[in-house]
Design a protein around this nucleic acid. Structure first.
Lengths: 199, 199
DNA sequence: ATCAAAAACTGAACAGTGTTTATTTAATTA
DNA sequence: TAATTAAATAAACACTGTTCAGTTTTTGAT
């Protein structure tokens, strides 16, 4: 039927990303498909390939948006804390995951096709989160050498991430859901305690 | 062509599981398909459905076998350690993941179809790993109350798991691969140090 | 205003996926 | 040897991502 001109390509791209996020949120990443996105937008599949290189591109950009939200949410938690900001950002990270399980899992369970690359924004945004934790840690443990801060930030953050992963995939069967934040507190606080003892 | 009688159904099932693990090991979970398994065995797809309920069933049982190997490997590491067994089992867990990335990722990145259940063995084996860590922790921290041991074991183990996840998915960009075991040591040792300080 | 060119959009095709089922073939039993 | 049972297949179904030849509409120039 040809050009309808109702939406610009930029608008179509935005619509597609929002629709994809909607489907991920409601039905999970596994239920996302190109045709489903297109149909829900009122277009056909081919149109998506005018604004995305391929399906991987669509998913990556949708996940990048989630990663942004996740970053802002975590940052917000740390900024509203007056002490132990490292713990607070960790709890903020967990809370976003618990509140948006499907979107959170989509970020970390998406299997990148062989031979494809991450979109640049994706790697940047992951890096930004680590950097944020590192900056909070350096304030909280001023006597720690910068090499140690770097390693510790990654260890701590990976640990918090691991708790989120296992909690969201139902693999923490011996732990009640309301105890999951306690796991984060336990890990972060004891690790920090151990660090300060070394000084 | 009908019954060839070359293999019993039990043998066919074992062949399928071994073939699936082979494909996962070499090409990753994303490249696994029912037809590929069947073809590599010298059978057709339909035959697989004589011994598996569905594809989910096949993947689950293949992953359960990996989970067993992972458990034995981790147990072995802890048994050969004379002190700090909690750290050693953690490093053993990490090493298995680094040595068998595709099999390890298959366990944790497999998206269970909506409305399907884990096979019972699967949940049991995950539980067994947590229980093992908990039993080592209780020896290493005898003065810790049993409630705390339970929580701490899960927090610690999730932490170690998180490091494995991010390392294998290439999200620890600020860290060299040979430093990853250091991350595990840092997390585990500092957390244990913090715990002992609380006593 | 008319016509050509460019851009937007579709629909159908392709190879692949998991799954089901009628059918064929071989081994077992009577 | 004939009837029965079990093993295995081939083909179909609905779905997936991806491509591309056409069709339709808008735009730009005469």
């Amino acid at each position: 039927m040809g050009r309808r001109g109702e939406h610009s390509l930029a608008e179509i791209k935005a619509m597609a990303l929002n629709t994809a996020i909607e489907i991920i949120t409601q039905q999970g990443l596994a239920q996302l498909s190109a045709r489903k996105v297109a149909k829900q937008m009122g277009y056909t599949v081919g149109t998506l390939y005018l604004v995305f290189k391929n399906f991987h591109d669509l998913v990556s950009q949708a996940n990048a948006m989630t990663l942004d939200e996740l970053y802002r949410h975590s940052l917000n938690y740390s900024q509203h804390a007056i002490e132990n900001k490292v713990l607070q950002i960790s709890l903020g990270y967990l809370q976003y995951a618990l509140d948006n399980p499907n979107r959170w899992r989509a970020i970390f369970e998406y299997q990148m096709p062989e031979q494809e690359q991450w979109i640049p924004e994706y790697a940047e945004k992951v890096q930004k989160l680590f950097a944020l934790v590192e900056s909070l840690l350096v304030v909280q443990c001023p006597s720690l050498p910068s090499d140690s801060v770097h390693l510790t930030a990654h260890a701590l953050w990976s640990g918090v991430h691991g708790i989120c992963v296992l909690a969201l995939t139902g693999k923490l069967q011996g732990i009640e859901l309301e105890q999951v934040p306690d796991l984060v507190s336990l890990l972060v606080n004891n690790c920090l305690l151990g660090l300060q003892q070394q000084d």
